[in-house]
């Protein structure tokens, strides 16, 4: 349904996306995760026909995004990461405007508009001005707008960005409902957890390249049983290295300023032993704490090149 072959985009000397090869099967949800600047938005805007690839090809529903852009536009619903709304239009008029853009007959458009407003829990806001709606409501209205012409493919760029916790939960509910519609969805986020509930597969973008692709299950399986420990202290580097190397439970070490970040798979007793070993080796440890695990970073560090890469 969505295929890219060596898709690249350069802005002058900056390479935003490099040789991206991606394949999203019909009716599946593909989550794209990466930090800011990883190339998620550029990739999605190329697929949404907003930006032309510098090289490579991308196909949506069999149509090439540059040469058959008009056909592509008819079969996608695109939600950008930051969007605005038109002032002085009601929610219903807003959706009907986009229905007109897609050439939907008026009676079909009105019926669909009311169904979708109800579907995103905005049925009672039909006549409210769009600019008077809260950010969360506007995000849900955008989802309804994407579905107005009933496209088989949805491209959603960080649909939960900028929302408060309550709106985030509501949006997650809408996204779960979207999954049940059986559409092919490409969705981006910089938080893996957000996608883990709805995505079938996750792709991790790093510096414009697809670093890894795996199912959510595989990713969580790799990450389970590991924890990240931050240790701050003063002591010779060689001593740090010796103690950490000698502990069989240490999986990965990253040196940061005055301390280290350790990926650890041992029990709490093992952790206590590690602390004792550091102290006995003469390192003045003044902080030893477990840190929240960034699953995608952990996944990348653990798997390196072992997970199937496409």
């Amino acid at each position: 349904m969505i295929d890219t072959h060596n898709l690249s985009k350069r802005y002058g000397r900056v390479v935003a996306v490099r040789d991206l090869n991606l394949s999203v099967r019909r009716g599946t949800v593909f989550g794209m995760v990466g930090e800011n600047g990883a190339g998620k938005t550029t990739t999605l805007s190329m697929l949404a026909t907003l930006t032309t690839p510098s090289s490579g090809k991308a196909y949506i529903n069999g149509y090439e995004v540059t040469r058959q852009a008009q056909e592509v536009r008819r079969c996608i619903g695109y939600m950008p990461d930051s969007f605005g709304v038109y002032d002085d239009l009601s929610a219903e008029e807003y959706l009907l405007f986009y229905a007109d853009c897609y050439g939907l007959p008026r009676d079909v458009a009105v019926r669909r508009c009311r169904e979708l407003l109800a579907w995103v829990n905005l049925g009672d806001k039909r006549t409210a001005y769009v600019n008077d709606l809260s950010r969360g409501m506007q995000q849900r209205l955008e989802i309804a707008r994407c579905l107005m012409h009933d496209p088989p493919v949805l491209i959603l760029d960080e649909p939960s960005s900028g929302l408060d916790p309550r709106s985030r939960i509501e949006m997650r509910g809408v996204l779960r409902q979207l999954r049940s519609l059986g559409k092919t969805i490409l969705i981006s986020s910089h938080i893996l957890y957000e996608l883990s509930e709805i995505a079938d597969e996750i792709g991790i973008l790093r510096g414009g390249e697809l670093a890894a692709v795996a199912s959510v299950g595989v990713m969580l399986q790799h990450a389970s049983g590991f924890r990240t420990i931050g240790i701050a202290g003063r002591g010779p580097l060689t001593v740090w290295e010796r103690v950490l190397r000698d502990d069989p439970q240490v999986v990965d070490v990253r040196f940061l300023g005055e301390g280290v970040e350790v990926v650890y798979r041992g029990s709490l007793d093992d952790q206590a032993r590690l602390l004792r070993a550091l102290l006995e080796a003469g390192i003045a440890v003044y902080q030893f704490s477990e840190r929240p695990t960034d699953i995608e970073q952990l996944f990348l560090r653990l798997t390196e090149r072992t997970v199937e890469e496409r």
């Binding site: 805007s45 949404a48 026909t49 907003l50 008009q70 536009r73 008819r74 996608i76 695109y78 939600m79 950008p80 969007f83 986009y98 853009c101 897609y102 050439g103 707008r145």
Partner: peptide, 8 residues
């Protein structure tokens, strides 16, 4: 951006 992703 959204307007440009429509067929108009």
């Amino acid at each position: 951006a959204v307007l440009l992703t429509t067929p108009i």
